[in-house]
C-alpha cells in the first residue's frame, strides 16, 4: 500500500482498538481486538475488500456466522463504520 492509502481507527466503547487501512484494492485490519480463530483474519480482510458499502454490517455479520468467526472487543458494525469512513 502506498499512494491513495486511507486509514481510520476507532476505540470501541467497552471494547478494543480497531484500525483499518485501505489501499491498492486491499483492506488491512489491525488493533488489539480478538478474532477466533485468529487465522480467519486474512479471509475477513479479503471479504471486506470486495464488499459493497451498502448494508455492510449485516454482510459482515453473515460472513462471520458462516465461517464460525467470533469477534471479541469489536463487532460487524464497527468494521462497517470504518469501511464507510475510509472509502472515498
Amino acid at each position: 500500500m502506498g499512494e491513495g492509502v486511507r486509514k481510520a481507527e476507532r476505540k470501541v466503547p467497552g471494547g478494543k482498538l480497531v484500525q483499518m487501512t485501505v489501499g491498492g484494492g486491499k483492506v488491512r485490519l489491525t488493533g488489539d481486538f480478538f478474532l477466533h480463530p485468529e487465522d480467519s483474519l486474512h479471509g475477513l480482510e479479503a471479504f471486506l475488500a470486495s464488499l459493497p458499502s451498502d448494508d455492510a454490517a449485516s454482510a459482515i455479520a453473515a460472513y462471520a456466522e458462516r465461517n464460525g468467526i467470533r469477534m471479541i472487543g469489536l463487532g460487524p458494525e464497527d468494521i462497517a463504520a470504518l469501511l464507510a469512513e475510509v472509502r472515498p
Partner: peptide
C-alpha cells in the same frame, strides 16, 4: 498481539538498541 502492527505499536529501533526482543504472539490483544 497477533493483529497488531509491530512498527506502529513498538519503538523497534529503541528495542534493538536496548537489547529488548520484539515478538508477535499467536493471541490477540495489545
Amino acid at each position: 498481539g497477533c493483529f497488531q502492527s509491530a512498527r506502529e505499536e513498538v519503538d523497534v529501533d529503541a528495542c534493538t538498541r536496548l537489547g529488548v526482543d520484539v515478538i508477535r504472539r499467536r493471541t490477540g490483544g495489545g
